[in-house]
Every structure is written in structure tokens, then in C-alpha cells.
Design a protein around this nucleic acid. Structure first.
Length: 479
RNA sequence: UCCCGAAUAGCUCAGUUGGUUAGAGCAUCUGACUGUUAAUCAGAGGGUCACAGGUUCAAGUCCUGUUUCGGGAGCCA
């Protein structure tokens, strides 16, 4: 600590009885004009602060409201009450910031809904649910860097503003300083981006992969972890216009190596949180169980949150080829009873219902699907010897769907140019990318993992807007 | 963007077949009590029934449009 207060988590987990301490935090509840439940965000557990009757004057007492911030000094003592081992007997109490109870929109005893809390996202961190979620989110971010650092990867910052959407990963947000009421025009009447800030049309990145590959061709192993932007009009529980993505890129890796890394990576993240955020996970586990109770029997999940995470940790991900996946679907009772809305045949891009069947009904664990038909995958994926499929791999997680998308990259120049030509991707703009295939090309692979999706999976939350502090979605850019 | 559903007090929700003055719990305020654990008990205040039209003697309730939100689908991470 760099100031003279003690964090509530430290206080509660240590043997501090008898010590004189200073604590600061926000009031969660004030009972009996005597007992303050104080929280400072270090843990969901509140510290009980006891003030003697008559110790404070009436006006001060009235200012101790839910949400008010306090500085308290006092002695740590064994609690007389049953709810907690330790409590602090206040000797001085200073109100740092008042909180008008009549106006404060976050009255915890009202059991506010997640939907309501999304509207007051600036205050929702002060709830147990969002406290737990964002401490877990932090831990996952930290674990990501720890994992790659241990493996000798270089953290590469790829650009946020780029000049092309060559990957075709989605609609982009345009970046420009041109006046939109009267932009400069070319002789042909089109907007003249030569006059723009960068002298060309630019947009926010939809992926750092192509730049990541450049780094991998020197450092062998790199990863990116940064914001990504897609201007798709997606209104779902698992899409954001601004999200965070992790994209490792490894030279000398084939598809198999790529899968091994991805699986070890996900398990590392889960394992990290299981040991370092136990209390928060237990809270989220309980929260999920409460929520499941509201659902009809048939819709309830079979496993609790912690149980699910342990299961994933202790079992290998199922690995099947696309062709096998299609065969399983065609042989499934669901298909034979015509339960699928969309038809199944080799060559289709699997629909959500198909992926859910494989993951949630058939295998009941994460599944890695490999070797997809080339026609439904991106140009940079390595063409297999059969000429029909590419060395792609998607990891599908129960309840979330696609959590990882990756592939071995096409390192053979002629084949890559051929694919780009077939898919009408201009090679001139990507000369810098093609240079990696001209000068010392090596087999390499990589994948992208949606950060918020892994946070969803680990916290058991179901709406992606609840696992990012301030969600950006179509028609919503508050805060 | 498409399909389905919703919008009533600060929050969570009821509101019957269209019928008189709009209901509850919690929160808030006032008072009581004082080792409480979402403290408890008593009382009080609090409503443009999302918005705009329409049907009707009469609309929170029926119809149309708009907005926002939720769930599902597509796009994907």
C-alpha cells in the first residue's frame, strides 16, 4: 500500500485482531444506526464497522447512507455477531463523500436487474456481481500476459488504425478528418481520400493478425492483445462493436501445434482464475445457480459454474474434422427427426444450432473442429493436400459458441496469390504481407480468441454487455 | 438487418371481458427500537401507464406507427 489504509481483503484474511487500522470504502448498508457494511472493491466481503450508540451526532449519522464514502480509524476486534470473524470498532469516522439516498439510483436492496444495471454501468461496479466479474476479467487479462511471457512470446502492439480491410473480417469504422458536409471530390465525383489525414482511406482495425504474422517472421512467437472494432449491425448477446482480442502468431507451428497451444492456453486461464479468484467464482457460481432455479427444468444446465470449469480443465477438448462433424450431424437423432431449421450437407457453413448440437448435446465439452471447406474460410488459411479443405480450426465452447478461430497460414506464395485472386483480394495493397512469403517463408499458424467470450465462459454470464465495462453496440455508446 | 416478446411509482412486478379514485413488495422520508446481518416495527409521500396518432360513450387494457429494451437468427471473436 502506498497510503496508510489497509484494504478490506487484507484485513479480513489476516490475523489483525487488536491492530489499530484505517479503512476507506463505500457504504453497502447501515443497520441499526450501529453497523456499517463497508466495501472497498478488494473483495465482495464487506467489513463490519461498529459505531457506538451516541458516539456520533445525529446529523453525521444521517449522512451514513448507502453509497456514501467513509474514512474510518479504529481497532480490529473479534466480532460479537455471527456473520463475520472480525470487525472494526470505529474511533473516528470521516465522511469523504455524501450520497443522497433519495437520488442514488443503485439501491442494492432492490435487487436491480442486469438490464437496469446496464443503464447505470457507471455505478454497477459497486455491486457484488459486477465486482466479481471485473476482478475476474482483470485476472484473465493478467493471466494472458503471464502465460505468453512464460512461453517466450513477444507482446506486439499492432496498429489500431489501418488502411485496409484485407482480411474481410467484417464491416469497418472509417477513420477520417475530412469534413463530412463537404468532402473534397475527385474529377470522377468520388470522395478524394488523397486529401485525407493519411492520404488514403483508413479504418479501425478488425484484426491484428496480418501484422502479427510479420512479427512472427522475426520473433518466432508473438501475440497481440488489444481492442478490435467491427461495424456490423449485430444485436446479440455475444457481439460487440468494440471488443478485445488475443491473437498469437507462431512461426514453425502446424495446425496440430496450434491446437495444442490454444487448448493449453484456455486451460491456463481457467486454472489461474480457479486458484486466484476462488471467492469471486464461488459468488458467480451461486448467482448462476439462483438464476437457473428460475428456469424450467428442461432449460437448466447440467453443471454448476465451478463444476463446469473443473470439467473443462480435467478433460481433453474433443478434436474432429469438419467432415466428421457433418457426418455426426447427419447421423444424429436431431437431424433424422428434422429438428434442425437449416439443412446439413458437406460444404455448408455450420449454423449455431449445428454447433450447439455438437458441443452441448453430442460431446458435452469444448470441441475443436478442423479442416473446413476452403470456400467458407479466409484466403490466408493453408490449403490442404486434398485441394478442397484448409487447415483451419475453430474451438466451440458450450453456451458461447465459437471462442477461438484460427488456422495454419498459407506460406506458399503461389498458392496464396491464387487464393487471393480467386477471392478478388487485390494483391498490390498487401505487398508487405506477401513479402513474408517471399523472404524466408516458414510454416506458421495462429488464432484469435475473443477476450469477452472467455470472460463470459469463465464467469457464467450470458450477455457480453455484462462482461465489458462500457459496452459499445449498435445505437449505444453511453459513458 | 430479420423473427418473437416487452415497456405501469426510484427498483421488481400485478392490473380480470375496455368501465368509477392506479395496486403490491422493496427503496426513500418521518417516528420507534438498539449487537444488527438484505435488521425489525408503525406511518407518510411518490404515476405524462414509453412516445405519436386512431377506434370507442369510455383506453393502462383494442388498432397503427415510432423509439428503446430483452430473447432468438444472420455476420463473427
Amino acid at each position: 500500500m502506498f497510503n496508510n489504509r489497509i484494504k478490506i481483503k487484507t484485513l479480513l484474511s489476516g490475523d489483525a485482531a487488536g491492530q489499530q487500522v484505517t479503512v476507506m470504502g463505500w457504504v453497502r448498508s447501515f443497520r441499526n444506526n450501529q453497523f456499517i457494511a463497508l466495501n472497498d472493491g478488494s473483495t465482495n466481503n464487506n467489513l463490519q464497522v461498529v459505531v457506538e450508540l451516541g458516539q456520533l451526532d445525529e446529523p453525521t449519522l444521517k449522512r451514513i447512507t448507502t453509497g456514501a464514502s467513509l474514512k474510518i480509524t479504529g481497532q480490529v476486534v473479534e466480532s460479537l455477531g455471527k456473520g463475520q470473524k472480525l470487525e472494526v470498532k470505529a474511533t473516528t469516522l470521516e465522511i469523504l463523500g455524501d450520497c443522497d439516498a433519495e437520488k442514488y439510483p443503485l439501491q442494492l436492496k432492490n435487487r436491480p436487474s442486469l438490464e437496469y444495471l446496464r443503464e447505470i454501468a457507471h455505478l454497477r461496479f459497486r455491486t457484488n456481481t459486477f465486482g466479481a466479474i471485473f476482478r475476474v476479467r482483470h485476472a484473465l487479462a493478467f493471466a494472458i500476459h503471464e502465460f505468453f511471457n512464460k512461453q517466450g512470446f513477444v507482446y506486439l502492439h499492432t496498429p489500431i488504425i489501418t488502411a485496409s480491410d484485407a482480411e474481410g473480417a467484417g464491416e469497418t469504422f472509417r477513420v477520417t478528418t475530412l469534413p463530412f458536409d463537404n468532402p473534397p471530390r475527385t474529377a470522377a465525383g468520388e470522395i478524394d481520400f488523397a486529401e485525407d489525414f493519411f492520404g488514403k482511406s483508413t479504418n479501425l482495425t478488425v484484426s491484428g493478425q496480418l501484422e502479427g504474422e510479420l512479427g512472427a517472421m522475426a520473433f518466432s512467437e508473438v501475440y497481440t492483445f488489444g481492442p478490435t472494432f467491427r461495424a456490423e449491425n449485430s444485436n446479440t448477446t455475444r457481439h460487440l462493436a468494440e471488443f478485445w482480442m488475443i491473437e498469437p502468431e507462431m512461426a514453425f507451428y502446424d495446425l496440430e501445434d496450434n491446437m495444442n497451444l490454444a487448448e493449453a492456453f484456455i486451460k491456463y486461464l481457467i486454472g489461474y482464475v480457479m486458484t486466484n479468484n476462488r471467492e469471486d467464482l464461488e459468488f458467480l457460481d451461486q448467482r448462476l445457480a439462483e438464476e437457473e432455479k428460475q428456469k424450467p427444468q428442461a432449460e437448466r444446465s447440467e453443471m454448476g459454474l465451478i463444476e463446469k470449469l473443473e470439467f473443462v480443465l480435467n478433460n481433453n477438448f474433443e478434436r474432429i474434422t469438419y467432415t466428421e462433424a457433418i457426418r455426426i450431424l447427419l447421423d444424429s437423432p436431431a437431424y433424422k427427426k428434422k429438428k434442425f431449421k437449416y439443412d446439413v450437407s458437406w460444404g455448408i457453413d455450420m449454423q449455431s444450432e449445428h454447433e450447439r448440437y455438437l458441443v452441448e448435446k453430442h460431446f458435452k465439452k469444448p470441441v475443436i473442429v478442423t479442416n473446413y471447406p476452403k470456400d467458407i474460410k479466409a484466403f490466408y488459411m493453408r490449403l490442404n493436400d486434398d485441394g478442397k479443405t484448409v487447415a483451419a480450426m475453430d474451438i466451440l465452447a458450450p453456451g458461447i459458441g465459437e471462442i477461438v478461430g484460427g488456422s495454419q497460414r498459407e506460406e506458399r506464395l503461389e498458392k496464396l496469390e491464387g487464393r487471393m485472386h480467386d477471392m478478388h483480394i487485390p494483391t498490390e495493397e498487401l505487398n508487405w504481407y506477401l513479402d513474408t512469403r517471399r523472404y524466408g517463408a516458414v510454416p506458421h499458424a495462429g488464432f484469435g480468441l475473443g477476450f469477452e467470450r472467455i470472460v463470459l465462459f469463465v464467469t457464467g454470464m450470458t450477455n457480453i454487455r455484462d462482461v465489458i465495462p462500457f459496452a459499445r453496440t449498435p445505437k449505444n455508446c453511453e459513458f
